[in-house]
Simulated scan of single mutants.
Amino acid sequence: MRRHLVKRSRFSVKWFILSVTLLFFLVPRVGAGRVVDGIFLTVNGEGITFSEFREFVAGRLGISVGDADSYLRKIDSEEKLRPLLDDFINVTLVRVKLKELGESVSDEEVERVIDGIVRENNITREQFRKALEREGLTYEGYRERLREDMEKSRLVRALRGKEVLVTDDEVREYYVSNRDRFLVGYEATFDLLSVNLSQARDRVGPAALREVLARLEDAARKGEHVSSLAEMLKERGIQPEVSSMGPVAEGDLRGELKEAVGELRPGETSSSIVLGENLVFISLREKKGGRPLPFDEVKEKIREELVGKRSLAAVREIIKDLREKALIRVNL
């Protein structure tokens, strides 16, 4: 007899693991070990199939659906599953809420945004796909992450639109307090970590690589030096290169590297930067000289940054509220 576990807000991952295990062993299989699909999770009345979760995992890890199926079969602990499951529930809650509001993001809208990205970069769809592959992403995974970003943005506009607006006075105040983030003509000394994505992917596989890169991003946000990030990679059998650079004149820096160094303060570490086949992190040691750009040249960039920060905070608050009120059912 089918049992039901009903619980407000978070539900036990152990129950989820049990439900997946039962699906693997009790449901008849088809072909090469594939699970016959069925509803295993209901969020606010919205039925979620196992294949939907499997496709979500494939996109998150940048692997095929078949590899995601194998990956899920090998999960042996709550710790490994929880981040994926939490993300999946959050995405589902946002999607269900947008559906209630009549504000769902359509496939056509997502494709139009991708068309715009392709045009702006003057490349073909095929070149775009290959560029994603070099970064360890699948086109399908990228498209779903883009959809999620669009959904979060739309939800914020619908529920907290006025709260994320930024006044001219707030923009100017930020500029005055952070002039050192808008310098030109400076010299910078920094440490740079570089890892070849293709070699790393061949070494540990796409799923493990995505997992370790997520850990690196988290460590960088916390301000850990690139030497610590390098040790994390070495623990997984990936050999990065770490080098000291500088002093380097601001005018000799290019593209995203220049932007990242310009925004850093001494002791801070950048988020990841893709340079060709390599993924790069920077820890700034020193920045000398330079002058701040005029306010009028950076005010819109500042406004965009502040709106982005407020929108991110609003999304977190909305999702927290949705989770507290959610009715989640796991079908065993």
Score class of each variant (00 low, 15 high):
residue 216 L to Y: 02
residue 203 R to G: 01
residue 223 G to W: 11
residue 156 V to N: 03
residue 163 E to P: 04
residue 243 S to T: 15
residue 125 R to P: 13
residue 192 L to K: 15
residue 194 S to A: 15
residue 202 D to N: 14
residue 167 T to D: 01
residue 199 Q to Y: 07
residue 183 L to G: 10
residue 205 G to Y: 05
residue 213 L to Y: 07
residue 153 S to M: 02
residue 166 V to R: 05
residue 146 L to P: 06
residue 180 D to C: 01
residue 127 Q to R: 06
residue 126 E to D: 15
residue 160 R to D: 08
residue 188 A to N: 10
residue 188 A to T: 09
residue 131 A to P: 01
residue 142 Y to D: 08
residue 129 R to V: 15
residue 227 S to D: 11
residue 213 L to C: 10
residue 217 E to D: 14
residue 187 E to H: 03
residue 198 S to V: 13
residue 208 A to Q: 08
residue 221 R to D: 06
residue 191 D to Q: 08
residue 222 K to G: 03
residue 151 E to I: 03
residue 198 S to A: 14
residue 208 A to R: 13
residue 199 Q to F: 03
residue 127 Q to A: 05
residue 160 R to N: 12
residue 181 R to W: 00
residue 184 V to G: 02
residue 182 F to E: 05
residue 200 A to F: 07
residue 184 V to Y: 03
residue 223 G to Q: 12
residue 207 A to L: 04
residue 235 E to M: 03
residue 211 E to L: 07
residue 235 E to V: 10
residue 139 Y to Q: 00
residue 199 Q to N: 11
residue 219 A to L: 15
residue 218 D to S: 13
residue 192 L to M: 13
residue 151 E to L: 02
residue 236 R to G: 04
residue 181 R to A: 06
residue 149 D to M: 01
residue 163 E to C: 04
residue 190 F to S: 09
residue 145 R to N: 05
residue 145 R to V: 03
residue 178 N to V: 06
residue 161 G to A: 06
residue 148 E to D: 05
residue 167 T to P: 00
residue 195 V to R: 00
residue 160 R to W: 01
residue 177 S to E: 15
residue 152 K to N: 12
residue 247 P to Q: 08
residue 232 M to Y: 06
residue 227 S to P: 00
residue 130 K to S: 12
residue 243 S to E: 14
residue 174 Y to F: 15
residue 149 D to L: 12
residue 241 E to Y: 09
residue 210 R to Q: 13
residue 125 R to I: 14
residue 190 F to A: 07
residue 146 L to E: 07
residue 218 D to P: 00
residue 190 F to V: 13
residue 224 E to H: 12
residue 213 L to W: 08
residue 173 E to S: 14
residue 198 S to Q: 10
residue 231 E to H: 10
residue 196 N to D: 15
residue 214 A to Q: 14
residue 150 M to R: 03
residue 225 H to N: 15
residue 224 E to P: 00
residue 230 A to R: 10
residue 188 A to F: 07
residue 224 E to Y: 12
residue 180 D to P: 05
residue 134 R to L: 09
residue 125 R to E: 11
residue 157 R to M: 10
residue 187 E to G: 02
residue 235 E to A: 11
residue 135 E to T: 10
residue 229 L to E: 13
residue 162 K to E: 15
residue 138 T to L: 00
residue 207 A to V: 13
residue 200 A to D: 09
residue 143 R to E: 11
residue 228 S to F: 05
residue 221 R to A: 10
residue 214 A to H: 14
residue 206 P to N: 11
residue 230 A to E: 12
residue 203 R to Q: 06
residue 145 R to Q: 05
residue 161 G to N: 08
residue 196 N to S: 12
residue 157 R to G: 11
residue 169 D to W: 00
residue 232 M to W: 01
residue 166 V to T: 13
residue 233 L to T: 04
residue 180 D to S: 14
residue 158 A to I: 08
residue 144 E to M: 12
residue 181 R to V: 07
residue 126 E to N: 11
residue 168 D to E: 14
residue 198 S to F: 08
residue 196 N to F: 04
residue 129 R to L: 09
residue 191 D to N: 10
residue 162 K to L: 09
residue 177 S to F: 00
residue 218 D to F: 08
residue 144 E to S: 07
residue 189 T to V: 09
residue 199 Q to R: 13
residue 222 K to Y: 04
residue 194 S to V: 15
residue 195 V to Q: 00
residue 200 A to V: 07
residue 196 N to I: 09
residue 181 R to P: 11
residue 231 E to F: 02
residue 204 V to T: 04
residue 239 Q to K: 10
residue 241 E to S: 13
residue 234 K to G: 03
residue 209 L to Q: 10
residue 172 R to G: 02
residue 141 G to L: 01
residue 169 D to Y: 01
residue 199 Q to P: 00
